[in-house]
Design a protein around this nucleic acid. Structure first.
Length: 270
DNA sequence: ATGCGGACCTGTTAGC
DNA sequence: TGCTAACAGGTCCGCA
């Protein structure tokens, strides 16, 4: 699953096939995702037009004139476009079939994702309203991160993965960004200087832009158009525990914070 | 307010 | 080779 870059690549991949197209039918094969896929998805979407596919953090919003459907891809979900019908396999959970014949198919092995109908005021929905700034927008800046981190005791890597702090950063990009910012992932957020915050903000923007430009780089990722959109990414630290740092050859350390792995270079990051 | 652990799932890999 | 345990991109919720 997808952190922000992979969700954005998915959005770009599916939008041309989806936007402006009326839905003919919705087939729900598996209801029990993170939350049950509601009947509204099957009952309201047909006959409606998807006006826009928007991304907010790691969520995708399928807008219609009458309300909005919300998709989260969890850890293993992906959306892809089928030009013609193929029998769904056991992890294909929902098909949105357009009058054009195109099918938008949701596949999610672990079923941590969701597909919900959130009605006409989507941004007020519980899942969206508290979400932090978009990392690529200008309101996500050093001053913001500095103020937000004051008096916080959580390790900075966990802090950056908090969607209320900044939208769309997950385990991979938190680890990668902190390496590029030369900051250890285990220091207290409240101890960050303004300069540290500035380096972190720059690094987050840089790794996300690089990843989007590379076309989505997740290990298991498939682009929205159904193409295998990835080539193996050269991570600086992520999943490189015990291997030499690409900058100084010191062995990358791996530990756990919370229940997630952190990776860092004890020499480059301080 | 904050932080922790449990829960939701299946598949892959590392280790014995 | 086969079995088991640990781990994997996320995040909500309940409890202390």
């Amino acid at each position: 699953m997808p952190e922000l870059p992979e969700v954005e690549i998915t959005r770009r991949g599916i939008a041309p096939y989806v936007e402006g197209n009326p839905v003919a039918r919705v087939d729900i094969h598996t209801r029990n995702l993170r939350w049950p896929v509601p009947d509204e998805i099957r009952d309201i979407l047909p006959g409606r037009l998807i006006t826009e596919v928007e991304r907010r953090g790691k969520y995708l919003l399928l807008h219609t004139h009458e309300g909005c459907a919300l998709v989260h891809l969890g850890m293993t979900g992906y959306l892809h476009i089928l030009q013609e019908y193929i029998q769904p396999d056991k992890h294909d959970h929902v098909d949105i079939i357009f009058e054009s014949g195109v099918i938008l198919r949701l596949n999610d092995v672990r079923r941590f994702g969701c597909l919900l109908w959130i009605g006409e005021l989507p941004y007020q929905h519980q899942l969206l309203h508290g979400i932090g700034p978009e990392p690529l927008k200008s309101d996500f800046d050093a001053e913001y991160l500095f103020l937000k981190s004051r008096n916080k005791k959580v390790p900075v890597k966990q802090f950056l993965m908090d969607q209320k702090v900044v939208a769309g950063v997950g385990n991979i990009y938190a680890n990668e960004a902190l390496f590029h910012a030369r900051i250890r992932p285990d220091i207290k957020s409240g101890d960050l200087s303004l300069d540290c915050c500035s380096r972190i903000v720059d690094a987050i923007k840089a790794v996300i832009v690089a990843s989007i430009d590379a076309g989505g780089t997740m290990i298991d990722y498939r682009s929205g158009s159904g193409l295998e959109g990835h080539f193996p990414r050269q991570y600086a630290v992520y999943r490189r525990g015990g291997e030499p740092c690409r900058v100084c050859n010191t062995l990358i350390e791996q530990r756990r914070i919370g229940r997630r792995s952190i990776y860092f270079c004890g020499m480059c990051q301080s």
